[in-house]
């Protein structure tokens, strides 16, 4: 896997009138995973979107080497199409083959329109899209939502394999997630102190 790096310098995020976090610095090199924790509303999703370049930070900069893949609450698959065709659109853009469809339990769902999939199946479909992108940096926002214990174990395994192969994984989740050697970053530590 290509060398990759993700660094954030003194990030602060403001949503509306509220400063969610400030002075957040972080540096991840290839082979590192980081778990961003914190209760709802502390800015986990905003941090992910800032790192992905989709949201401008109030203060600070983000640097990255290597492409980034994002998994969040939006599925980004055509609801009216069968799963296979929906994924084929991204495969055509990413130029890679679908990986691990059987492992994700999707192989027999390829003919089913996306709108008929259950919450857990939709999440696994999004993971298939993520894997297909072949990006070294993974930004995962609540990847375990709606997944059963078996699928949770699978996601933990996929992240571990990705990191072992030299990739970066940054996971924002309020749930526990077991990946060997993963760092933890507690967002409430960066909450501004009230004057």
């Amino acid at each position: 896997m290509e060398t990759c790096r993700l660094a954030a310098n003194h990030l602060a995020c403001r949503r509306g009138e509220r400063l969610l976090f400030t002075g957040l610095s972080l540096e991840l090199a290839g082979g590192e995973a980081c778990h961003v924790t914190g209760p709802n509303g502390t800015g986990k999703s905003s941090l992910i979107r800032i790192l992905a370049g989709l949201l401008r930070p109030f203060v600070g900069t983000v640097e990255n080497t290597g492409s980034m893949a994002l998994l969040d609450q939006s599925l980004a698959l055509d609801e009216h199409l069968p799963l296979g065709k929906s994924l084929a659109f991204w495969r055509a853009l990413d130029g890679a083959a679908d990986r691990d469809l059987a492992r994700l339990g999707l192989a027999e769902l390829l003919e089913v329109p996306v709108r008929y999939l259950s919450t857990g199946q939709r999440k696994r479909a999004a993971i298939a899209r993520l894997l297909g992108q072949n990006a070294p940096i993974w930004l995962l926002d609540e990847p375990l939502n709606g997944l059963d214990t078996q699928a949770v174990a699978l996601v933990e395994q996929l992240v571990a394999e990705h990191v072992a192969a030299g990739g970066i994984a940054l996971i924002a989740s309020h749930q526990a997630i077991a990946v060997p050697g993963m760092r933890t970053l507690a967002l409430p530590d960066f909450e501004p102190e009230l004057a």
Binding site: G53, L54, M68, L70, S74, L75, E79, W90, R129
Partner: peptide, 14 residues
């Protein structure tokens, strides 16, 4: 925009 396609395209540099 709602279903995240534009975010995914942005991440792919389109």
């Amino acid at each position: 925009v709602e279903s995240g396609f534009f975010d995914q395209w942005a991440l792919r540099g389109i």
